[in-house]
Measured scan of single mutants.
Amino acid sequence: RKWEEIAERLREEFNINPEEAREAVEKAGGNEEEARRIVKKRL
């Protein structure tokens, strides 16, 4: 699934746990840019 690939990239890029990465992607509706913004806000 594409969402899992996005979550994996976010996890590696921001050094967050898989659960946090998945939550961000879900919140963003699968949009990678939006997920990235969500993760950055949390850091």
Rank of each mutant, 00 (worst) to 15 (best):
E5I: 05
E4Y: 06
E4P: 06
E5D: 12
I6S: 03
I16D: 01
I16L: 10
I38M: 05
V25S: 02
W3Q: 07
V25E: 01
L10H: 00
E33W: 09
W3L: 10
K40R: 12
A21S: 07
W3F: 11
K40Y: 04
R9T: 07
A21D: 00
E12G: 08
V39T: 06
R42L: 14
N17C: 07
E19N: 11
A28G: 06
E26V: 13
R36P: 00
P18L: 15
G29R: 15
K40M: 07
K41E: 15
E23M: 11
K2R: 14
E32S: 05
N31E: 08
R11W: 12
K41W: 03
R37G: 10
V25R: 00
E13M: 05
R11K: 12
V39Q: 02
P18Q: 14
K41C: 07
K41L: 07
A21V: 04
V39K: 00
K41F: 03
I38L: 07
E26S: 11
K27A: 13
E19D: 13
I6L: 13
L43S: 07
E8F: 05
V39I: 15
K2M: 15
E33V: 11
K27E: 15
E13G: 03
K2W: 13
G29V: 11
N15D: 14
R11I: 15
G29H: 14
K2E: 13
W3A: 08
R1G: 14
E20D: 11
I6T: 05
V25M: 06
K27W: 08
L43K: 08
E4S: 05
E23F: 06
L10E: 00
E8A: 13
F14S: 03
A21C: 04
F14Q: 03
E12I: 11
N17S: 15
A7M: 13
A28N: 02
F14E: 03
E33N: 10
R11A: 15
E26P: 00
K41S: 14
A35I: 02
R37S: 11
G30Q: 02
A7E: 08
I16C: 04
G29L: 13
I6G: 00
F14N: 03
E32T: 05
N17D: 14
I6F: 04
A21T: 03
V25H: 00
E23K: 12
E20F: 14
E34F: 05
E5S: 04
P18A: 15
E12D: 14
R22P: 01
A28S: 10
I16E: 02
E8K: 12
E5L: 04
